[in-house]
């Protein structure tokens, strides 16, 4: 029974990992940008949520209504102010600049909040659980997070393939020059892509903060989980990130079930295994 439980919990955890991954996948799809500070933005969003819940006395889920637009705004300004200037043939400038941002965010958070682990409380929701047949107890909160993750990915999928913004994303991704000839301002489209990416990061950060304790140093680890989910699922495939997240979550939980020290290692090994047998991921869409 422990095993079934571990797998079910792993699937639900996969939803959170898919949220880490979706924003990363989105900006890579639109502008081939990899944001090394992605994980640190997740942690930033968690701290933002913490500040809002403690100062305004709101529940974390209500705080999302503030965190998400603030993160989106940060994303837009960051892209137009700094990151657009780094895009080009050379992959080094965006990599170095986001690496620098990662260091800045980590140490900025350290200055403000100290290194102490923090956690957000979602009240009674945290302890509520559903009893499933076969003696399985599943928390309401993990289920809620998983459902939200699926909804977010469905929403992103809709935006990407059914909205005019998504059309602009795909057009700019295909051919930046010709897209400009269609009246699309590349700088703005990229800004919107980053805004959307960090909006998802906002949700991911608040969920992370409710689920586990967090401190300023854990960002890079979240980046790696998100990255692994993207690669396992296949580049450019949003639903793939959900599959990737689930595979990662299940692997980690199975690893932990065997030996608590193997939790993270099992996830990484699952990633390396996929990389070895299917280098382009399970469901690739971009070369």
């Amino acid at each position: 029974m422990d095993w079934v439980n571990a797998i079910v919990q792993g699937i639900l955890l996969g939803g959170l990992y898919a949220l880490f991954a979706a924003g990363l996948s989105l900006i890579f799809g639109v502008m081939r940008l990899v944001n090394i500070a992605h994980g640190d933005f997740i942690v930033l969003a968690a701290f933002l949520g913490l500040t809002i819940t403690t100062t305004l006395g709101l529940s974390p889920l209500v705080a999302l209504a503030l965190v998400v637009p603030v993160m989106a705004a940060i994303g837009y300004v960051l892209q137009r102010g700094i990151l657009n200037r780094t895009l080009g043939e050379d992959i080094l400038p965006p990599l170095m600049v986001t690496f620098g941002l990662s260091v800045i965010i980590q140490n900025g958070l350290l200055e403000i909040y100290s290194a102490d682990p923090q956690k957000m409380s979602a009240g009674s929701l945290e302890t509520a659980s559903l009893s499933l047949p076969g003696d399985l107890n599943v928390g309401v909160l993990p289920i809620l997070m998983f459902v939200v993750a699926v909804a977010v990915i469905a929403g992103l999928q809709w935006i990407f393939y059914r909205s005019s913004l998504g059309r602009a994303f795909r057009a700019v991704s295909d051919n930046q020059d010709i897209a400009q000839l269609m009246g699309l301002n590349k700088a703005h489209v990229f800004g919107m892509a980053m805004a959307l990416s960090l909006a998802v990061v906002g949700i991911a950060g608040v969920f992370l903060g409710i689920r586990t304790s967090f401190d300023p140093s854990i960002g890079p680890g979240r980046l790696i989980f998100g990255f692994e989910a993207v690669i396992i699922g296949g580049l450019g495939n949003l639903w793939g990130t959900l599959v990737g997240g689930i595979i990662l979550g299940v692997s980690q939980n199975i690893g932990a079930q065997i030996n608590p020290g193997w939790q993270l290692l099992a996830g990484h090994l699952a990633f390396l295994f996929v990389l070895a047998v299917r280098p382009r991921g399970l469901f690739p869409r971009i070369d």
Binding site: L33, I224, H268
Partner: peptide, 25 residues
């Protein structure tokens, strides 16, 4: 042999995963 399958920035993060695997191992 493993991480040369990744390109550009994804190669970079792939090297990081390897370092994590070493650390955890």
């Amino acid at each position: 042999l493993l991480i040369f399958r990744l390109r550009g920035a994804y190669f970079a993060i792939g090297t990081w995963v390897i370092a994590e695997v070493f650390r955890l191992s």
